[in-house]
């Protein structure tokens, strides 16, 4: 009896090992950039960023979603083959380098530190850090007018660090997410919310905040949104860059920007947009 049990356990574990081995090889085969015909094309986006990447039930909307869908189509993946994967800021590099996503389109600023871990295609949009204020507040015109005001941003974000450097005397309340900052702004707990103008425009366009909030429109940083892919994958990078260029020339880019960021009266900075793509390396 006992021997038979041991035998069963051994058999089961050998089987499990065999299965994991299969799983690994299957993954290796599937994740080779862009390919894997018929397989799901996994795209990392934000799930909680109105106007950029937002999940509502089974529906995904936003500029990042539209750009990703267009690129996926150019790479030969039908819209139905895309599998959206939630990619919080802190996990983006890990998701890419471990092959859990094929590309990340998630308000992902191109920086040198990130380039050491992954590669970027793009940029597909150039955003800038800006301020969101209540619609009836005309006292805040830019970062210089922030002294003595209460400002809100997300814990540890680049925007929060920037503004601390730029306006040393600012009173900064940090929260875990921007939604909490928006709630604080509406309830007059803070006077302004700072982060990329695209994200701000997304919140200002939301149904419940329409007419209550406005983007100041004086960007004081440059955030070049790129598409994160596996490090060193220049072939995919070239294909994505071609796709972005095509999206810009056939006006699909303009339409996506207008649809997603337009409702809040957000003006795209025409001096930097639409952007020219970097060379792949």
């Amino acid at each position: 009896m006992k021997i038979r049990q041991i035998g069963a356990v051994t058999a089961a574990s050998v089987l499990a090992l065999g299965l994991t081995a299969c799983g690994d090889s299957a993954k290796d085969g599937g994740s080779t950039a862009g390919g894997g015909g018929g397989a799901k094309f996994k795209v990392g986006i934000k799930f909680d960023q109105p106007g950029l990447g937002l999940k509502e039930g089974a529906k995904y909307t936003g500029l990042d979603v539209d750009v990703a869908t267009y690129i996926a189509k150019e790479l030969g993946h039908a819209a139905g083959d895309i599998q959206w994967v939630q990619s919080p800021s802190a996990q983006r590099e890990t998701l890419i380098s471990t092959g859990q996503v094929d590309m990340v389109v998630a308000t992902y600023s191109i920086t040198d530190a990130r380039k050491e871990k992954i590669s970027f295609a793009g940029p597909y949009f150039v955003a800038g850090q800006d301020l969101l204020v209540r619609a009836d507040d005309s006292s805040i015109t830019g970062p210089d007018a922030l002294t003595g005001k209460k400002l809100c941003s997300v814990t540890g974000s680049t925007s929060a660090q920037n503004v601390k450097k730029k306006v040393p005397g600012v009173q900064l309340q940090e929260f875990g997410t921007y939604s909490e900052c928006v709630a604080a702004l509406v309830s007059k707990g803070v006077d302004a919310l700072t982060t990329d103008n695209t994200i701000l425009a997304g919140y200002a366009s939301q149904e419940q905040y329409k007419g209550k909030l406005k983007v100041v429109g004086a960007p004081f940083s440059t955030e070049r949104y790129g598409i994160g892919i596996k490090k060193g994958d220049t072939a995919t990078c070239e294909k994505i860059n071609t796709a972005i260029a095509k999206m810009i020339t056939d006006k699909a880019w303009q339409k996506a920007v207008d649809d997603n960021l337009g409702p809040a009266g957000f003006k795209v900075d025409a001096a930097t947009n639409p952007p020219k793509q970097d060379a792949c390396s």
Binding site: Q91, E93, A113, R114
Partner: peptide
């Protein structure tokens, strides 16, 4: 740190 240097 993760924001500045990427997750690791």
């Amino acid at each position: 740190t993760i924001e500045n240097e990427g997750s690791g």
